[in-house]
């Protein structure tokens, strides 16, 4: 993906999250981008590794800092004790206006990822994204129990039941994304 388009996709994702009243901190943007890439099929090119709150991309972290440096995202501190939000600026809106066709190309996938993340807390996103991580890992058993067990193994604070629920949610999201992709193609 061209770098300018990547800027547009990430800032638009932040805009869509904020518009839905979702918390829009780094963790939410990380997980939303992961879903955008792995389920909605937008190849942002970020490499995700299993980290503190599930799949995490250090490249995406760099990109978010870059976007802040350019003035396309701004760090908005919140009341004590909460972490900051990352919100798009007027310059990000101006960029979207300059690239209408690119925005149209990715809009439905961005909407899908923002909808999937919107009402979930960081604690809920962690099992969901971790379930997706093992679901997408090539050669990993597809059985719900195997994936749930693996989640509990690498994240001992996530119970097997919670892992099982997360796997179910991921499978549902993957199913809905198939419809999305079919619609996008048509």
């Amino acid at each position: 993906m061209e770098s300018l388009h990547k800027m547009l996709v990430i800032t638009q994702l932040a805009r869509e999250l904020a518009a839905r009243g979702s918390w829009c901190g780094e963790t939410h943007l990380q997980k939303a981008t992961y879903l955008l890439q792995e389920i909605a099929g937008v190849d942002t090119g970020f490499e995700f590794v299993l980290y503190r709150h599930g799949p995490f991309s250090f490249d995406l972290r760099d990109q978010l800092t870059y976007l802040r440096g350019l003035g396309l995202l701004e760090l908005q501190p919140q009341e004590i004790p909460y972490g900051p939000k990352l919100l798009p600026t007027d310059s990000a809106q101006a960029l979207a206006q300059k690239l209408p066709r690119t925005l149209a190309r990715y809009q439905s996938q961005i909407t899908f990822a923002a909808d999937a993340v919107r009402d979930r807390s960081v604690a809920e996103l962690e099992p969901l994204a971790t379930a997706l991580y093992f679901t997408k890992q090539s050669g990993f058993p597809k059985a719900v129990s195997a994936r749930a067990e693996k989640i509990s193994e690498v994240k001992p604070h996530i119970s097997r039941d919670r892992g099982r629920r997360a796997v179910g949610e991921v499978d549902k999201l993957i199913e809905s994304a198939k419809k999305l992709k079919a619609t996008t193609r048509n």
């Binding site: 979702s22 918390w23 901190g25 780094e26 963790t27 939410h28 503190r52 709150h53 919140q78 004790p81 909460y82 972490g83 009402d119 979930r120 807390s121 960081v122 604690a123 809920e124 962690e126 994240k155 604070h157």
Partner: peptide, 15 residues
């Protein structure tokens, strides 16, 4: 980890 959000649905506790 500090709370990275105000509770948005569900449990907002950090792990």
């Amino acid at each position: 980890s500090p709370p990275r959000e105000k509770n948005v649905g569900g449990d907002g506790a950090e792990s």
